[in-house]
Structures are given as structure tokens and as C-alpha cells.
Design a protein around this nucleic acid. Structure first.
Length: 376
DNA sequence: AATATGCAACGGGGCCACGT
DNA sequence: ACGTGGCCCCGTTGCATATT
């Protein structure tokens, strides 16, 4: 293998147009479940393609979210490790990267048939304020469906069914939209629950059919990155590709709150540990850029101990606004990384297209984001 | 008193109806 | 087919109300 100097790598990276105006995540495997601020697959794809990643190493994403990096690594036959605190994120990542047995759709139909019968249910789930967000009729259908889905023995099928149910929960709730947290009246009935669920299952089956088989192993660790020990990472890491959460920006726990309640997870515990959650920025001793610096330092320490010498760490991150002040998150990471002995290879500014609907750019002050490439 | 939860104003830009 | 005006969608964010 040809030895590449740091300057060659830097040159290679800066010759790529990172704006990727044609990119779509609205179709294919990444559309099986909504997730905010997914990064476009082209970013990890081109990083994996361009970087001289040491042989026999794996890719790590310490904030894997919906698993875009993991899917890209798997497509190229590279082992990967994803860490995420959010159980919904982990479920999405798992379903995307593991094989789906052929009887999935039959099982789904079986669940729907039974749940439709409307058998007598013994007590619904104890979910706070459930009546505010879900019509009682809808609650009954979801409960019935969930009872069936959770009884499925085959793990991969059960997880895909749970994901399908999760994906439709906001639509069948009174929550205005995935990102607007207010109750409105909607025209949804019990039949719709089963109909939407069936469609969601078909979408998963179709996307899985079209994606390559999951031969290359992917390990997903469901816990907070800062609480993860290096020993939990099973393989030496050759490159880290991640987009960390921004302080005072999106609240993933809130976005997925009722999904977590229904699936039996605890959103409140997730909120407490979620980096960047707004809840931490509207209290008396609220978080500041300093907290973010410490959180990134912890992350980089973990990265440093699992990354092989000569391995790369890539961060995709924009700015955020804390009480009116713009915080340059990329510079915070760059500085901490420098203190920890990482070498900066390149820092690229990429334009976020205005047409990208997952962000409203009018208020965000985030019209660009940074790709920071470091080397150990 | 302080935090948790939910609401809705703001406003850019997408999109649709309508005219040429 | 193309241009345009305006309605409406929806991410963001400050704040009101509920809860502890």
C-alpha cells in the first residue's frame, strides 16, 4: 500500500465538493424511520473512501443516531461500532444493519390480524399524560399491536416490527408533527393504525431487500458515550466518523418521548444524560459552552484510547446558539483535540442546502457546517 | 421556587393556483 | 410552459402554565 503523507490526505479531502446538492435521505434504507438531523450518507461515504484507514480496523461512531455511518461502513465491508444513548436510535441502527428474515411480512400480517380482533385488553401501559397525546381508541389499537409484536420470538423480526410501530406513532398521535410538540386534532382512526403499520413494515422489507446483506459485523452499544469504557469497543478502531449533538439544539429525547414510553424505555433517564438537550440550558445553573467542551474532551479521550496510532477522527458539526450567543462547536472540538495530542489534518466548511427540510435555516444561523478531520 | 411540559408566534421558503 | 403572488408548512425559540 502506498504511504500517504498528511499533506496528500489533506489535498485529497479538499479536492472533494462536500456540498452534495443531489443527496436524498427521503428514500431507501435511511427513510424507514424519522430521525432529526441525519447526516447525509455521502459524508461518511467519501470520508471512508478518501482516508487511508489502517487495515484490519473498524469504524466507530460514538453518536451513531440512526446509523448512517454504520450502514456506509458495512457497505464497504468494514466492521463498525455505534454508541448511542437513545434506545430508538439504537433500534433504528440495528434494523438497518442486520438481516431481516424472509417471514417478516407474514409475521407482520399475523400481528395485524390478531390485533384487529380487538381482544379484551388487561390495562394499557402506564404512560404519563397519555390521553393528552393519544385518542383512547388509538391507544387500544397500539396496545393490541404492541402485545402481538412483543410476543414474537425471533429477535430480528421483533425489532423490525417494533421499529415499524415506532415509525408511525407520531402520525397516529395528536402531536402536530415530529418536530412540533403541541397537541392538535387529527383525523386518524383505528384502521389507520393497522394500515400505517402495514405500510411501514412493507417499506422496511423493501429497503432491506434492496440493501446488501449484513455480512460485515456491526456492534451497537446502547449507553451514553461518556459512560462507555474503551473495553466495550470490541475491535481496534481505524477511523471515527461522527456528528455529535449540538448544545441547546435538538432534543432527541423529546422527539422520541412517546416512542420510548410505548416501547418500554425511559425517556426521562435519556433526557438527563443527553448532551445538548435544551432542558440543560433553561435552568438556574444552566449548561454553557464549557460543559460542551468537557463532554467533547471525554469523548475524545475514549476515541484516543480505542483508535490505532495513525487512525482518523472526523467530526461533522455546526454552530449553536446559547442564550443569544453563537458558539463555534467545531473550534471547541479542534482546540480540545489539540490539547489531547490529535493532529488536525483538515477543516472543511460545507454549505447546508436551504432546501433541506430537516433544518429550518431561517432562525438557526446554521447555514454551513464544519467537517473536522483529526489524526492520532 | 424551580423545573418540567406544552403552546404558538415568527418568518423563510416551498408549493399551488392562476394568469398569460 | 412559465412567471408570480400569496398561502401555508414547519423548524426554531421564547414564554405561559403545570407540576413538584
Amino acid at each position: 500500500m502506498k504511504i500517504l503523507e498528511n499533506s496528500d490526505v489533506s489535498q485529497l479531502l479538499s479536492n472533494i465538493n462536500w456540498n452534495f446538492p443531489q443527496s436524498k435521505t427521503s428514500e431507501g434504507i435511511h427513510s424507514i424511520h424519522p430521525y432529526p438531523a441525519k447526516f447525509i450518507p455521502e459524508i461518511p461515504r467519501y470520508l471512508i473512501k478518501s482516508l487511508p484507514i489502517p487495515e484490519d480496523t473498524a469504524i466507530l461512531d460514538p453518536f451513531c443516531g440512526s446509523g448512517v455511518t454504520l450502514v456506509e461502513a458495512q457497505m464497504r465491508g468494514l466492521k463498525s461500532v455505534g454508541i448511542d444513548l437513545n434506545p430508538i436510535a439504537c433500534l433504528i441502527s440495528k434494523v438497518k444493519t442486520q438481516d431481516l428474515p424472509a417471514e417478516f411480512l407474514n409475521t407482520a400480517a399475523h400481528c395485524v390480524n390478531f390485533a384487529r380482533k380487538g381482544f379484551e385488553l388487561t390495562g394499557t401501559r402506564d404512560i404519563p399524560n397519555i390521553d393528552h397525546w393519544f385518542d383512547p381508541q388509538i391507544q387500544q389499537s397500539v396496545t393490541a399491536l404492541l402485545l402481538m409484536v412483543n410476543s414474537i420470538k425471533e429477535v430480528a423480526i421483533r425489532q423490525a416490527l417494533r421499529l415499524a410501530l415506532s415509525s408511525i406513532l407520531v402520525r397516529i398521535s395528536k402531536q402536530e408533527s415530529d418536530t412540533r410538540y403541541a397537541a392538535i386534532e387529527k383525523d386518524v382512526n383505528q384502521d389507520d393504525v393497522f394500515e400505517f403499520f402495514t405500510v411501514a413494515c412493507r417499506k422496511i422489507a423493501k429497503s432491506k431487500e434492496q440493501s446488501s446483506s449484513a455480512k460485515t459485523p456491526v456492534k451497537i452499544i446502547e449507553r451514553d458515550t461518556l459512560g462507555t469504557k474503551p473495553s466495550a469497543i470490541p475491535w481496534p478502531i481505524g477511523a471515527v466518523i461522527t456528528s455529535p449533538p449540538y448544545p441547546n439544539a435538538y432534543e432527541y429525547w423529546l422527539y422520541h418521548k412517546y416512542r420510548m414510553w410505548w416501547l418500554g424505555f425511559d425517556p426521562i433517564a435519556v433526557k438527563e444524560k443527553e448532551i445538548g438537550a435544551r432542558a440543560h440550558f433553561f435552568r438556574k445553573n444552566h449548561h454553557t459552552a464549557q460543559n460542551f467542551k468537557e463532554q467533547m474532551e471525554g469523548t475524545l479521550r475514549l476515541i484516543r484510547s480505542v483508535l490505532v496510532s495513525g487512525g482518523y477522527a472526523c467530526f461533522v458539526i455546526g454552530r449553536s446558539k446559547i442564550h443569544g450567543k453563537i458558539v463555534d462547536n467545531a473550534s471547541i472540538i479542534e482546540n480540545v483535540a489539540g490539547e489531547l495530542g490529535f493532529k488536525k489534518i483538515e477543516r472543511i466548511t460545507r454549505r447546508i442546502l436551504a432546501s433541506r427540510k430537516s433544518f429550518n435555516l431561517s432562525h438557526a444561523n446554521i447555514k454551513t457546517e464544519e467537517i473536522l478531520i483529526l489524526k492520532k
